[in-house]
Amino acid sequence: MEYVNPEGLRLDGRRPMEMRQLRAEIGAVSGADGSAMFEMGNTKVIAAVYGPREVQHRSQMVNDKALIRCEYTMANFSTGDRTRKPKGDRRSTEISLVIRQTMEACILTHLMPRSQIDIFVQVLQADGGKRKILISHSKHLICYASQLLFTFFSGTRSACINAATLALADAGIPMRDLVTSCSSGYLNSTPLLDLNYVEDSAGGPDVTMDAKLPMDIFENVMQLATEGCKAVANYIREVRNLILVLFQAIRFEKVAIVWFLLMENQVCGERCRRRDVINHLPSYLLFGLNFRRFRAVTVGV
């Protein structure tokens, strides 16, 4: 399929380095301490933050920092099919975890000991939503290289992160930086910024997470992954500046983190194999990697 036509336009008429339309609104939920609504193209997410407040389950209390909880849900009407999804399915649990850990790295939790911050994120309208890898990057956080985050995001998830950041800022919770998120991909040998649903789904089958692969195949794929990661690493260095410029067009001029999506093919990384995946990544990408999150790798060749 042709994702970029000869005139250099994408399926939805954008140029490769063009973002979808962004819209944000603060104070969308009246009862919350902080709340925000974030739209990226056809994706619409609402986030509410409660806290810092008294810890609800005393057993979870952390003595020296705040407990951060996140709940991600998708409204039943958010996608084309109206299947009723059970609360707490694998997908939403994972995204909750992703958002929680991203925000945990960002919030100055040590300033609010023995308290709890709840982040509720709900997708009102989803456009896209396949599991992909993104690498985050930040203006300030880069100086703490240890804060470099690797996570798996797509259009929906990046909107979730953006909404959650806005809501946290609205709630007056101290943060190191504003985390923002955006996906990008590599299709038809063109780097694309901010993938929409069709492009997102084009990245290949979504085998990643728990597929079992025979060891020999895995090694081959790992080889591929290594090559891919190298390619991507080079590519990131080229595109980062572009994306930063683009981001400044967005309302936040204090952009911190840019997520990169590495895609095209995929490889699995299960718990036991995670280390292998990591070993093959270029060292500067690994520095301070958020290992617990590192579950899968997709590869661009």
Partner: peptide, 9 residues
């Protein structure tokens, strides 16, 4: 005037 900041300013 001019004294409002956002995160990371």
């Amino acid at each position: 005037s001019n004294s409002s900041v956002t995160v990371a300013d």
